[in-house]
Design a protein around this nucleic acid. Structure first.
Lengths: 198, 198
DNA sequence: TTGTCAACTGACTGAATGTTCGGTAAACAC
DNA sequence: GTGTTTACCGAACATTCAGTCAGTTGACAA
């Protein structure tokens, strides 16, 4: 045969992808700064030095993880559905998509939400995140200007409360509990848009 | 005179209180694990070793800070106003008080909300915090049972969303922007209880 | 002037940290 | 079999870390 079956059973081991996904899990359990390469090695079932065969170092792991979260948000901002139609409907769509991204990429987004800017990598991620926050802020302001949001609350405050609620999902959401992204988004939108009171 | 004036101008310097309050500020900027004693010393304007004259060590600083946050929550749970009356009104009161405690003790509560359980100190704090969460959870369930909350959302989900929103305030609130604790609580309660839509 | 004491410095220690490197065993290609 | 590649180990590396301790400084009391 000319082509050797490419997916032949190779010697089992890690690759950059499996290292990243396990590492992000540990980062979220113990915090990035609270995680040592020794911790990662233990979680991977190898020695510290083996990690460096797959990835360049600890900070690169963080950078790749943060990009996964930020790329999701960037795609959403670029979507046509975030650009046309009544602002209140676009806002609803953006909230729903944000919840979906948060749930789909839970460990990566969770990590992003905890970044404080201690390194260049973290500062760059915060910068990209700020662009997203500015986008949201404009959207809420438009919805308020169109008269779709109660006028007795400052739109800046609404933005922070609304997306504070979305982001807080990362602190408690567990896929194993059965609630889907849409279940959570439905509940959130009911509460924030129509209120909890009967 | 028998008693030497006790508040005479002593040689200016730090005391355990000023060390704690500055340390907590740095912990919140860089994260507890991301903060070295050298970082603290720089912020205090002294050398590392001077810190140990005032406080026993890094972890004790964390423990004292977390207690400040948790003591506030404990007091609220013990208050009579959290125990009698319609559940929905008690819930509203607890939300408002939670926002007040968060704002009044902002740096301490912020630190508490970021604890992951890496040490015994952190685990003990998480344990105390879980008691508070259980209290809240019961309260929301009661309000739902009394028919004061829309029945089409799971009370457990309501609890997480509502207090996720409260906790997220720590991520953005700045006293210098002028909004008081009550301003924020008003906006939050309007959104969560009555909805943003006009 | 002398003594006391709170507040601090500077030099240090041992442990932990992220990273590097020489070597190696097993799987594969030929 | 022979050579190559993949995935890893173990030992070391320089650096950073929390914490210690003997000594110094300066304000104040007597």
């Amino acid at each position: 045969m000319a082509t050797p079956t490419p997916t032949r059973q190779r010697r089992r081991g890690h690759d950059p992808e499996s290292v990243l996904s396990i590492a992000v899990g540990v980062f979220n359990e113990r915090g990035y700064d609270g995680t040592s390469m020794e911790d990662l090695a233990r979680a991977l079932g190898v020695t510290k030095s083996a990690i460096y065969y797959h990835v360049p170092g600890k900070e690169q792991l963080l950078a790749r993880a943060l990009d996964r979260a930020l790329d999701g948000l960037s795609e959403m901002v670029a979507d046509q559905r975030a650009a046309s139609g009544p602002a209140i409907e676009r806002l609803e769509w953006v909230v729903r998509q944000s919840v979906r991204i948060l749930v789909d990429r839970l460990p990566y987004v969770t990590l992003l939400l905890r970044v404080r800017g201690n390194s260049h990598t973290e500062q760059a991620a915060l910068e990209r995140r700020r662009e997203f926050d500015a986008f949201i802020s404009r959207l809420v302001k438009e919805a308020a200007a169109e008269g779709s949001i109660r006028p007795d609350v400052d739109p800046a405050l609404v933005t922070r409360l609304l997306f504070g609620t979305v982001n807080s999902i990362a602190d408690w959401y567990q896929p194993s509990r059965g609630a889907s992204s849409d279940d959570v988004a439905d509940a959130l939108l009911k509460m924030a848009f129509n209120g909890l009171r009967v």
